[in-house]
Design a protein around this nucleic acid. Sequence first.
DNA 1: TCGTTATAGTTACATATGAAACCATTTGCA
DNA 2: TGCAAATGGTTTCATATGTAACTATAACGA
Lengths: 162, 162
Amino acid sequence: MPAKRQPAPPPAEHPLPEHAPLELERFLPYRLSILSNTVSQAIADDYQRRFDLGVTEWRVMAVLARFDGLSAREVAERTAMDKVAVSRALARLVEAGRVDRSTHDDDKRRSVLNLSEAGWAIHDQVAPMARARERELLAKLDAEEQSWLERILDKLMPPERH
Amino acid sequence: MPAKRQPAPPPAEHPLPEHAPLELERFLPYRLSILSNTVSQAIADDYQRRFDLGVTEWRVMAVLARFDGLSAREVAERTAMDKVAVSRALARLVEAGRVDRSTHDDDKRRSVLNLSEAGWAIHDQVAPMARARERELLAKLDAEEQSWLERILDKLMPPERH
DNA sequence: TCGTTATAGTTACATATGAAACCATTTGCA
DNA sequence: TGCAAATGGTTTCATATGTAACTATAACGA
């Protein structure tokens, strides 16, 4: 435990200089959190109610749209979600008939996942909406800023994740 | 690392080229979400266990460190949390003796909130840790990138929030 | 001054999420 | 082989979070 204020008790009311309070609104992690939540929420609002589809479920659908026949673990890797979250999202998606699940021939532990016809139908509506939102967001930046943002994100991103 | 399945040229099984799947790892909202979560988690890990302090509680403490005598609603505004979350965070903080709560003289609905001595003691340990993490993160960028990031965040940020 | 409406804050309920325990199958190796 | 350890996936339990309903007080208008 670091030493606390030994010298004099505080003047009763206001923070002493050494308290050095954090300015939340300039604090990078805080700003990232606000921005990310605002953006994700805006997109989710588009499809959440309309398709009764959660963010995690949408992410799973998005990777299955790109890669056929993944296992749940592979989906987890590609969505940066943990396996429990993936398991639950899949349970709902399979139940809703949006994903087909079967068992891997050579390894009965693994599942083999694919979008169903119904899943594709939803994907084909949601994907353009998501892209449109992204464009709206990027439209706030000029071309130069956009390319700096690319570069900055690449450097800040945890390496396993891209 | 086992080799992953490849995208595989569309085996005509699932129809039509126009499916245009989203590439999650290049999708801005997704990247922001990963980055934000990774960063927040790293910071939270520093104090979560050590002080039994949640992220929401820490945010409340941070604004109370800057502004004396706020009401719960004002805390909510400044933390971008909703009033229920603030109410719950305050319940725990008051219970733990980290925040003093009294009732406003002229308006008995409002509370008047301040960090207690114990609250300050924690604040004075956590704030430097948070700042250190922010510095670590920013250290991945050079000066020019840092100033672009500032500028870009200002433009992307929802206006009410800063 | 009374009654309506608005505001501060809490409570209740339903759902989401994370950690750990768990089951089934497969792998590694003595 | 045979059995311990690892892996894929699900279930359980404890918390966290969001929405709506609720209580108490204050503000406002006729």
